[in-house]
């Protein structure tokens, strides 16, 4: 069975207000990079807060960081690196016009993204079991003797849930796009959408590559 053999035409359809396809593609790439700039600065604010907490309360932050599920975080990083690989695969195949293979890679990417979220959900559940949710007012907090540790644990929830939200958005867009891309003729008109989305996906990966050490590793 040959998935790659069903080559389809690869290209981008010109939208009327652009002069050339080349211009249209450049605009799309630049637009995504401009958006990613803002994403980086968004998360930078959280990383800065984590750093300041570490400076103000070193012991408490260390204690809190030791309670995070280090190994789930590490496995999740592996999962995201894997999803980046499948996303790169989808982009490569889209350039070749191998539509079915591309769709499979996209589905794999969405599956890995979902796996990340499931593991994250399990991690939250384990945190809940261990009374590591200081923002819940009706549930006693494990490290109640160390008030500043609350701050770091809470920041961990803000940062990871914001990242999770980005990932969830990414998966949703990816699934919609997979559905569109599975129809014939997609690659002939919108090949660059795969590439643009790929940038976003890799960047979520990049943010996690920064978040994992910031939250789990550096403060141990």
């Amino acid at each position: 069975m040959s998935a790659g053999a069903s080559d389809s035409a690869v290209g981008v359809k010109l939208v009327s207000h652009f002069a050339t396809v080349e211009q249209q593609k450049r605009a799309a790439v630049l637009g995504m990079w401009a958006w990613l700039l803002t994403e980086l600065l968004l998360f930078a604010g959280l990383f800065l807060t984590a750093l300041i907490l570490r400076l103000l309360h070193p012991e408490a932050v260390q204690e809190a960081a030791r309670h995070l599920k280090f190994w789930i975080g590490a496995i999740n990083t592996v999962v995201l690196i894997g999803s980046s690989l499948t996303m790169s695969g989808a982009i490569q195949l889209s350039r070749l016009g191998w539509q079915r293979g591309m769709v499979r890679f996209m589905l794999a990417t969405a599956a890995l993204g979902t796996l990340f979220l499931l593991l994250k959900g399990y991690e939250y559940y384990a945190d809940y079991q261990e009374h590591m949710m200081p923002f819940l007012s009706d549930r006693p907090y494990e490290l109640k003797d160390s008030p500043p540790s609350r701050l770091f644990v809470n920041l961990y929830y803000v940062a990871t849930s914001l990242h999770g939200l980005h990932l969830m958005t990414g998966i949703t867009i990816l699934l919609v796009m997979t559905w569109q891309a599975s129809r014939p003729g997609f690659l002939g008109q919108h090949q660059n959408r795969i590439e643009i989305f790929g940038l976003y996906w890799h960047f979520i990966d990049l943010i996690w590559i920064l978040a994992f050490p910031t939250l789990y590793v550096l403060n141990r």
Partner: peptide
């Protein structure tokens, strides 16, 4: 899933 060896080579190259 990628049938011919040609395709596999192309795939690997990319």
């Amino acid at each position: 899933m990628f049938g011919t060896s040609d395709e596999r080579r192309t795939l690997w190259r990319h």
